[in-house]
């Protein structure tokens, strides 16, 4: 800790010496790389490829730190995962930090360090950044926004309109860990036990599928979880998606918490999983590729696309053989049982 103050004040956002110190001592120190120049107005990037991919994302997670990650690592994984599932290798990030007056500098530093570590592990460099300080009460401690640039590296075309009836859906690992871990941390449940966020880079997973012909489309099931991805696909393709409940990997601890709280894990956010749609004859190979990776052991074929029966829908084939409608996520689902 090199800053004089232990807490962020409005002075850290006024463009003067305090701000200079904040950037140097916290941001530059943890994020430095050969491209980042905190004195320049702009930087030149050299991009090794034809198809440049570009994305942006904002991060407002509460609490700022949770088992398995923090808003810092999330700001890297969230944006680079969006590039990765689109078939790209992420290369550069920009970072905007909105810090609320009164935030502990030590906390900020942990988060920025986390961000730096995640960037290094993922192989991206933070190439530009900005910080703002918000008056007390006008922010959730820290908000981050990252913009990512990458180059397309997938050998074929990845798009929803590549999806055909008969294609199958795979997921790379257990779902719901992130959603439950963050919720338990936010509500200070103080549960012993080990539900950790799955927040991680999915780049190894998406890269592994580059060798598999017949991959149609990939997406990371973040907000709204698996069901929201399935609904997007159903809407865009006009196909019906049947998910097979027993095949969907969910950790027992997550199931227990969901059962107790009345949540459905299929709607919970993940931050380190990939949903892929592949041609039926590519499923086995895709599964093998994922299972060979560390953390890919629970990868599974979880559903299939069928020609429209009664309008694009997402269905769940239950453990007991029933076929249940999975409706689109609602903000605050109310019980329906009369």
């Amino acid at each position: 800790m090199k800053l004089e103050d232990s807490h962020i004040s409005l002075a850290h956002g006024n463009g003067g010496r305090f701000m200079r110190e904040l950037i140097d001592e916290v941001f530059a120190r943890h994020l430095s790389n050969d491209t980042l120049d905190t004195n320049a107005d702009s930087v030149a990037l050299s991009l090794p490829g034809e198809r440049i991919m570009f994305t942006t994302d904002g991060f407002t997670v509460q609490p700022l730190e949770f088992p398995g990650g923090s808003i810092g690592s999330l700001a890297v994984h969230g944006t680079t995962n969006d590039l990765a599932v689109a078939g790209a290798d992420p290369l550069f990030l920009s970072l905007n930090a909105f810090i609320e007056e009164g935030v502990e500098v030590a906390l900020l530093e942990r988060i920025v360090a986390d961000l730096g570590r995640a960037a290094t592990e993922t192989g991206v460099r933070v190439a530009a950044g900005d910080t703002k300080v918000l008056p007390r009460g006008q922010g959730g401690g820290i908000y981050l926004a990252t913009t990512g640039i990458g180059v397309y590296r997938h050998p074929g075309v990845l798009a929803m309109n590549e999806i055909r009836a008969g294609d199958v859906m795979l997921v790379s690992g257990p779902i719901g860990d992130h959603g439950i871990a963050v919720m338990l941390a936010r509500e200070q449940f103080g549960l012993r036990g080990d539900i950790r966020s799955d927040a991680a880079s999915v780049l190894p997973l998406t890269r592994a599928l580059r060798a598999v012909p017949g991959v149609r489309f990939m997406r990371d099931p973040t907000r709204g979880g698996l069901v929201s991805v399935a609904h997007e696909i159903a809407r865009a393709t006009g196909l019906e998606i049947t998910l097979d409940e027993p095949s969907i990997p969910v950790r027992p601890a997550v199931t227990t918490v969901c059962d107790m709280l009345g949540y459905d894990p299929f709607y919970l956010a993940c931050e380190g999983r990939v949903v892929a749609v592949v041609a039926p004859d590519a499923a086995a190979e895709a599964l093998r590729a994922w299972k060979a990776l560390p953390g890919g052991g629970d990868a599974s074929v979880i559903g299939e696309m069928r020609a429209l029966v009664h309008g694009g829908r997402v269905l769940l084939k239950t453990e007991l053989g029933g076929l249940r409608i999975l409706e689109e996520l609602e903000d605050d689902p109310l019980p329906r049982i009369c």
Binding site: E187, F189, M260, L334
Partner: peptide, 24 residues
């Protein structure tokens, strides 16, 4: 049942908890 303390805490904090008058 097992895990009931999670429900109790959810009830205390009002997580996914709804008010009702249901006689059923």
């Amino acid at each position: 049942p097992d895990g009931g303390e999670i429900a109790r805490r959810a009830w205390d904090k009002g997580i996914n908890t709804q008010e009702t008058t249901a006689a059923g």
